[in-house]
Amino acid sequence: MNNMRKHDSDRLFAGTLFLFAVLLILLGLIMVSVMISGSWKSITAFDFSFLSGQIWNPLRHSYGALPFLYGTFVSSLIGLILSTVVGVGTAILLTQFGHIKYVKIATILLDALAAIPSVVYGLWGLFVLVPWLRNTGEPLLKTELGAIPFFNGQIWGVGLLAAGLILGIMMLPTIITVSRKLLDNVPQDLQDGAIALGATRTEKVRMVVLPYSRVGILGAVLLSFGRALGEAIAVTLVIGNSPTISTSLFEPGDSLASVLANQFLEASTHLYLSSLYEIGLVLLIVAVLFHTASKLLIWRVSGRARIL
């Protein structure tokens, strides 16, 4: 009898958990179906030209999402490059060259950085970074690297470069924290092996430490990139909110998440609202595709290297 009751309680518990899991899947399906039905008008009206259209002008009922796709990828890519170089470099410094006391202080500061809400980053970007870019940073880039089309254009302050820099700064804590853990986990006997051959610390990092942890670092970088793609608030404050495609990184642009945050409340016609829904759908698909692709990549690379 007693056994029976226990058995019943197990089934009840497992059943409840199962229900939660089903609810979660349902929730995902509902979300996708709402996005699709919301954007149906726009999908039927524009077909695939929605993705390739370069003009976004609600007053003339012209809805093309390409400027937002472009702005999203370019700003995230700038952030990715910046945060990878600086972040992995910082992690190497902390794990391989740092004094234990300073490493502890740095860790506390980095954790605090990760806890700052994105709107604060955005405001800092708007009031500190953007004026600096307008008066110092971008003029300098223009005179030094103006031959490259990316750094040749009218200077506004706000724009793709500002958005990319803010995203890079926001991605930094994650990349540093994850890379640091990975670098710390490189087996000591491998590192000793390199040192015993007469490697300097720098040579050891190049020979053993980075090759051993590269797959994990790639994972951290891709994960941060996925999050940068969907960042709305901080980007919207500094990107300039202009649906244009320009080679110059100084020019204003806009991103998928940013246009949603900006225009959803002011969408005055059904088609306008539906097009914004489709922007949301595109963002969802891009994020899921990217997530899956990065998982596949990590899986393939780690399969080859037999590490992690």
Binding site: D189, G193, V208
Partner: peptide, 14 residues
């Protein structure tokens, strides 16, 4: 002064 360790530690990515 060369050294060989307790457990084999070849560089795994090479």
């Amino acid at each position: 002064v060369g050294m060989v360790f307790q457990a084999p530690n070849p560089f795994p990515t090479r």
